[in-house]
């Protein structure tokens, strides 16, 4: 269990990240707020408790692959909180002179472990990192964040087979299960449910949690670390647009920027949490 100080600290960081997400998308007049807000609490725990990353260049650091790369705003915001990129640079997101590309670019952005954007490929990449870690007898861990719509890509299941086949217990998959994709609810567009059973049958240790509960997130990572001989998949039940009243569970906020009034309302919402 987290103590009150740690809990408050997580809340403060997540609040800052959510505010940065809204500001970035508002300034860029484009981007993907919904799914960024749903992974904010998970990223907060990863970057401020779970992951061992003293420096983004350390060969022994834990790695994170944001396979759902369109949620780059959440990643950039957390990297800024971490101090890997200057916070003021977030204003330049998606602008022509900026290094903060629409989707994460490992060669331009310190702290980005893999370039992503084309969906369904990040788990394979994470497997490669995990295999390399085993070959080199290093004890870093690899985290991979997938979207629940993203897992409709066939390659996800090729790579899920690989994770289990090569017994990658240094790998932890997190499925951001917010139940929405661009065209609607996942069960209506292309039903990927039951997600936990699918990963389980592919040979994963699976854990279903509330992806906004810091204690549950932390406990799941702890179980993942203790699980030997197989990879872990955490199915995180989340709310798309979490924290912004009018965005929550609304599919239209997958990839849309708020206008002036909506921006003000969003900032107000965040004050009230």
């Amino acid at each position: 269990m987290l103590n009150d100080i740690e809990l408050q600290n997580f809340k403060n960081i997540a609040h800052n990240v959510r505010q940065s997400i809204i500001e970035m998308v508002y300034n860029a007049k484009s981007g993907h707020p919904g799914g960024s807000l749903s992974i904010t609490d998970i990223l907060t725990v990863l970057y401020f408790k779970e992951m061992n990353i003293a420096s983004p260049d350390d060969e022994n650091r834990d790695r994170l692959v944001l396979s759902k790369g369109h949620c780059s705003t959440a990643l950039y915001a957390i990297l800024a909180e971490k101090g890997f990129i200057p916070k003021e640079d977030l204003k330049t997101f998606r602008k022509i002179d900026s290094y903060l590309q629409g989707h994460p670019d490992m060669n331009k952005i310190p702290g980005v472990d893999m370039t992503t954007g084309s969906l369904g490929q990040g788990l394979s990449v994470s497997n490669g990192m995990a295999i390399a870690g085993k070959l080199d007898k290093k004890d870093y861990r690899v985290y991979c964040i997938l979207g629940d719509g993203e897992i409709e890509e066939g390659q996800i299941w090729e790579s899920a087979m690989t994770s289990a086949h090569y017994k990658l217990d240094n790998l932890c998959v997190i499925v951001d299960n917010n139940n929405l994709q661009i065209d609607g609810k996942i069960e209506e567009v292309m039903n990927s449910i039951p997600i936990d059973k699918k990963f389980e049958s592919f040979g994963f240790n699976t854990i279903v949690i509330n992806g906004h509960d810091y204690n549950q997130i932390l406990d799941a990572f702890e179980i993942a670390k203790q699980t030997k001989g197989k990879p872990t998949a955490i199915i995180a039940k989340t709310i798309k647009g979490k924290g912004i009243s009018y965005m929550e569970n609304k599919v239209e906020w997958h990839g849309k920027a708020p206008n002036d009034d909506e921006y003000k309302l969003a900032i107000q919402d965040l004050m009230n949490i």
């Binding site: 490929q121 990040g122 394979s124 990449v125 990192m129 390399a132 080199d136 790579s159 690989t162 086949h165």
Partner: peptide, 18 residues
């Protein structure tokens, strides 16, 4: 296995680690 897409992306992950 018979999974070329996975093979290529896994190779990318391996390359990021040297």
């Amino acid at each position: 296995g018979i999974a070329e897409q996975d093979m290529i992306s896994t190779s990318a992950g391996l390359a990021t680690c040297g």
